[in-house]
Amino acid sequence: MEVDIRLAAERLRQEEATRGAAQLVTPGDTVTGDGGFMRGHGTYKDGENLVASVAGFVRRINRLISVQPLKARYNGEIGDVVIGRVIEVQQKRWKVDTCSRLHSLLMLSSVNLPGGEQRRKTQEDELAMRSYLEEGDLISAEVQNIFSDGSLSLHTRSLKYGKLSQGVMVAVPSNLVLRRKNHFHDLPCGATVILGNNGYIWICATAVGEDGGAGTGGYVQNLERVPLPEREVISRLRNCILALAGSWMMLYDTSILYAFEASSKFQARDLLKPEVMAEVADLTRKRLDLEAAE
């Protein structure tokens, strides 16, 4: 049996001590005493003063002041791509867990059923809802609307979205997923990554052919055996994403790809060791910094 013995080590971080002008505040700190500013997320008014309610860095956009915490529950915005898990089937709707403050809703009227977009939803569809999506299924969807209590209404009215079949889901803090134009990436290493804005990330083998994988919004799952090399790529990607998240680095296609390339000198399972994770993240950070400097 292989035994791995390591010393407990405090991870050294070569961080710049100060990060420009960004102001670090903790709950109860006065951000500004000037009454001319608007109150954003993470702040509250105490008389004239604007006071922080979370620990994080102050962001100022014109007259709007907000404080962003390190991690918090996902705050949905319309148009966001999310990954969610169906937890309940109700009358005409599914309840979906999206790591948000409240459960999200997926209405029967905002999904594409087999048979095309124009198809009308009948009584039979309502009865057969569980045959399309049942408890425990993972889906990718888009935020269609936000209800007044803050819960999200989702839709899957595009072929991109729908039920996910074989792959790996990783949960990271939602703040770490960078908002981009595109959240579906076919990486050159042979895997498809869906970066949900809610911090859930889906990794699966890139589909070949016109019908299959994440590209179809179908309700048919492709349960064929995934070959070993592809499974290795998927698990390596998963470990790379966890390494980046562990070092609190932003996640987007380039950073994930660079981490994947930096990890090539290690075995996929070694990427679970803390010092290897730190090194992969460090190499990625250096490469990104180098590119930003150019």
């Binding site: 990060r19 670090l24 620990a55 609190w248």
Partner: peptide, 16 residues
Amino acid sequence: LNRAVRRHVSARSSEK
């Protein structure tokens, strides 16, 4: 406590 929180947050600051 405040000192500990500040140390925790500033060690994990990430700008893309």
